[in-house]
Design a binder for these strands. Structure first.
Lengths: 152, 152
DNA sequence: CTGAAACAGGACTGAAGAAGTCGGATATTG
DNA sequence: CAATATCCGACTTCTTCAGTCCTGTTTCAG
């Protein structure tokens, strides 16, 4: 529970891989799948999803493949997860929808909605670039990129 | 995905309910189940789990039931979820275990482990007392109880 | 212009986990 | 003893995830 699906994992890994190989104009699904030992057909569908959601650009034909649609810093982990798994909510009964059918007393939800927002905020603060291994190992400590605060 | 199980939801709701009725020495599983429209047998098992993990105290026999083992402020949402659903990790392949069998290149995990820690921190900062409806509606704004900060 | 290499996408199966039920055992009290 | 509880394992059902299969379509090299 409270787990990312493997698809989301795979998607993040694939984007990370693409971000680490900017020299290549495009990498095929098979390339990425082989690099990580992921089932190629499964990854293909994930990359298609990411393409449909505007995170990747695809090109068919020989020497085709996928490339990041934007700079790696402009793609957040949140977007990736959203594109692959759809909107996520920590509670089974989100107050937006008409769930909570039999339990109008779902007063638990309001506090947990804030937890949900916090998680979303954290995921939004992480970019694909953050996941990728950047070369410069020297100055890394001075990067206060993501900062999320929650107040109950 | 990234959802709490219904069991965890039910558990939180039940503890909240108990916290809101401190005058009663004990409430039976059926009492709570009826209050929220939860299947009684299912809730019973959840309450048993919470008892086994030291969050509740149980008493069999007539007029028996469950009561909080500690003050509502001393029971965190994290403990509840942990007791009901077991340890949770956001990534399918946690770096502690021997997972990631075929993919030694799971470099995604390290950043996501921090997300995991952040979520855990948020959940730890929320107590059952926070979930319950306290009476004093007057001074509520000055309560800076939970505060979690994450720096990447 | 033809074939290989890629993307696109629907349909399907198997496995795993979640949700809920059933039946019975034990403890407590009136 | 009988009623009301907790306790607990086994079971069924349902849903979702993971993965496969198959069939197209696009693109480009030769």
């Amino acid at each position: 529970m409270l787990k990312l699906t493997k698809k989301a994992d795979y998607g993040l890994m694939a984007l990370k891989y693409l971000a680490e190989h900017p020299e290549k104009p495009a990498l095929s699904a098979k390339d990425v799948a082989d690099a990580y030992g992921i089932p190629a057909q499964l990854l293909a569908k994930i990359l298609q999803l990411l393409t449909k959601n505007g995170l990747l650009r695809s090109h068919a034909g020989m020497n085709g493949g996928y490339a990041l649609a934007r700079d790696a810093r402009q793609i957040s982990a949140y977007e990736v997860i959203l594109a692959i798994d759809g909107p996520f909510f920590i509670t089974s009964c989100t107050k937006g929808a008409k769930n909570c059918d039999l339990t109008p007393s779902c007063t638990i939800k309001e506090p947990l909605a804030r937890v949900n927002d916090t998680i979303a905020g954290v995921l939004k603060s992480i970019s694909i670039h953050d996941l990728a291994e950047h070369e410069q190992p020297a100055h890394r400590s001075h990067a206060p990129q993501g900062l999320v605060t929650l107040t109950l």
